[in-house]
Design a protein around this nucleic acid. Structure first.
Length: 594
RNA sequence: GGCCCCGUAGUUCAAUGGAUAGAAUAGAAGUUUCCUAAACUUUAGAUGCAGGUUCGAUUCCUGCCGGGGCUACCA
């Protein structure tokens, strides 16, 4: 890669000029700011002790050495401690040739390591909402990025299918459902069950109100309301395996899964393995025993078991109740171990909201204290809440954005825009429908992924369904446009290969674009190491923007030498390929025409 | 109270300790006989406050001010 070659040359300069060895990894190059001449900038400030002279002189010496001793650095200038390097047009053309003829471009060798990515984690008492979308897209995209970066990836979904909250919707259904089914009601199973969850809450609130009015203390009322007592009773029955209760649970969960499957299919997301909490909630007790034996945990007088993490800057944390039943942490320790047994990973990523930062910090500490060799590979991909302009989403107050509704709205808006712009001429209906889905989903995924995962973000429904500017469809459009160029080049039988030495003077746009193409792998690496699709999202946007600038400037099929023409087509083709690969990492399809 | 995260143009987002803090959108002004105008060009506009570390701070440290989260024998 070009950047490596330059770094090697700089290291050579240090060796030759100052008799000092620097490893290539320690050297940093940055893109030259556009107000200066050059493409790559080497900052000399940090090396003044080695060069034993002032910044300007250091830059000048290194620049001169590089010009003299390499055939691709054709010029340089020094501004203070900044050495700006110019790369010859020939080198750029050769670089593009290399990229374009490299069938393996963008591919990273498999590294033989396994990583498990857990995401989505829905509750089976209500449908998916906007927050889940951020989670799902992050998890899916991160999985794709890790896979592309050489890992063997296992995508898993741990479904929260048991517990008091599940019993709430079951109870309300039992009382008020009159045997209603999704088919009868004409709504998806998850929405039907969600309806009864809301119903429960209404009843529950009404009962509390009544109790308060009859003189009960508000706190006591919350605990004494008949509905909550019934739900607790139901949970007990479920745990005892009462056939009727389990039957109801299975029926409702079945409906919810059907609904979820539909939504996942619409989102283009699938999992390699499903875990259910109903199967894992009893796990972890053997780990508690192990921890006691290893004296990582300790038992209090009432029999409850704790871990002391004060040395790690945290508190004491309960890992088993006094009555011997499990808490969330017990379960998660067990599940962590089970996941590793099922798929012996080097890394395991949990895509979970940042309200659980502390929980995972504790969990990972415990696994480390227990001596699990994989504990350093545990990673909490923590993401911030999605806010609405009206404020925080609250399911009980009905201020959530439903995932299915939002997806449909995106598709509809895509259709409206597409038809308005007259883009569907010559497309059959199936093709057009396919396009609306790609655009709507592309817009939504890109919107949620372009933001740094850990940051809280604002989702304005009106503004979010945009297809102009820094959006998924902008990148998709660029790809469609390039595809048209490539199609035309094919009919003209333009040869892909060109003689680099005959391409001639390159424009700044062309250099920028090739430069950007050379950074694909670096963007992938950074994205994978940071578990951040946002980095890749930014890369594809910048690439698309660079291409649009280039496209605007020079007609590609104008009359010039065959080499110049082939060069531009090759540049287009390589860009399309990089865009497609990058967007694929975000889980976004790029259409051939739109 | 303790701990964690976040404060950047009107708005939504960027910026491995680097040069004159970038985009998009909204505002103003332009560009289609020519490969897709969902595009392009020009223009105006921002680092919460106060210190510190250094050649250099949006970035690192301290304090304050604002927003959010965690702080359950809930999950």
């Amino acid at each position: 890669m070009l950047e490596i070659e330059i770094k090697e040359a700089v290291a050579g300069a240090f060796k030759s000029l100052f008799d000092h060895s620097i490893s290539v990894e320690d050297l940093a190059l940055q893109p030259t700011r556009k107000e200066f001449e050059g493409t790559y900038t080497f900052v000399t400030f940090p090396y003044l002790k080695i060069t034993k002279t002032n910044p300007e002189e250091s830059g000048k010496k290194i620049g001169e050495w590089l010009s003299k001793n390499t055939d691709f650095i054709c010029g340089f200038n020094v501004v203070k401690g900044f050495l700006n390097l110019e790369i010859s047009d020939l080198k750029w053309a050769e670089t593009l040739n290399g990229i374009d003829s490299d069938a393996q471009f963008g591919k990273v060798e498999k590294n033989g390591k396994k990583v498990m990515v857990e995401f989505s984690s829905p509750n089976t008492n209500k449908p998916l909402h906007l927050g889940h979308l951020r989670n799902n897209f992050l998890g899916d995209s991160t999985s794709r990025i890790l896979d592309a970066y050489g890992y063997e990836v296992m995508k898993v979904n741990l479904v929260n299918d048991r517990g008091i909250h599940i019993c709430k919707s079951m109870l309300a259904y039992q009382k008020f459902g009159h045997g209603e089914t999704p088919e009868q009601a004409g709504i998806k199973g998850d929405h039907l069950v969600g309806k009864y969850y809301v119903k429960f809450d209404q009843e529950y609130k009404r009962e509390i109100q009544e109790l308060i009015e009859s003189g009960t203390d508000p706190k006591a009322a919350e605990k004494e309301a008949p509905s909550i007592l019934e739900a607790q009773e139901m949970l007990k029955k479920w745990e005892e395996g009462d056939p009727e209760t389990v039957g109801l649970w299975e029926k409702l969960n079945g409906w919810v899964y059907e609904g979820f499957d539909q939504t996942y299919a619409t989102m283009g997301i699938h999992f390699d393995k499903m875990y259910q909490e109903s199967q894992t909630y009893l796990l972890g007790k053997d780990i508690v025993d192990e921890g006691l034996e290893k004296e990582v945990f300790f038992r209090k007088e009432n029999g409850s078991v704790w871990v002391d993490l004060t040395e790690e800057g945290m508190d004491e944390k309960l890992v088993l109740r006094g009555d011997g039943t499990a808490v969330y942490m017990t379960q998660d320790m067990g599940t962590c171990e089970k996941k590793h047994d099922d798929f012996p990973f080097e890394k395991s990523v949990y895509v979970v909201g940042n309200e659980q930062d502390y929980h995972f910090k504790v969990l990972f500490s415990i696994m480390k204290k227990l001596g699990r060799d994989y504990s350093d590979g545990l990673y909490h991909l923590s993401y911030g809440m999605v806010d609405l302009p009206s404020g925080k989403m609250k399911s009980r107050e009905g201020t959530v954005v439903d995932a299915d509704d939002l997806l449909k709205e995106m598709f509809d808006t895509a259709e409206k825009h597409t038809v308005e712009l007259g883009k569907i001429e010559g497309m059959d209906e199936g093709e057009a429908k396919e396009l609306y889905k790609k655009l709507g989903l592309g817009a939504l995924k890109y919107f949620l992924l372009k933001v740094d995962p850990k940051k809280r973000m604002l989702f304005n429904p009106q503004e979010s369904i945009e297809f102009q500017g820094h959006t998924g469809p902008f990148i998709q459009y660029t790809h469609a446009r390039i595809s048209a160029i490539v199609r035309r080049a094919d009919t003209l039988e333009i040869n892909l290969s060109f003689d680099s030495s005959k391409v001639g003077k390159l424009t700044q746009r062309e250099i920028d674009l090739i430069h950007r193409l050379t950074n694909y792998t670096a963007a992938l690496r950074e994205s994978a190491n940071d578990y951040s699709p946002a980095i890749m999202a930014q890369y594809v946007y910048d690439l698309a923007k660079d291409y649009n600038g280039f496209y605007q400037e020079v007609p590609i099929f104008n009359e010039e030498s065959k080499d110049a023409l082939s060069f531009r087509v090759a540049l287009s083709r390589a860009t399309a390929r990089a865009l497609k690969m990058g967007m694929n990492l975000l889980g976004i399809d790029v259409p051939e025409r739109m």
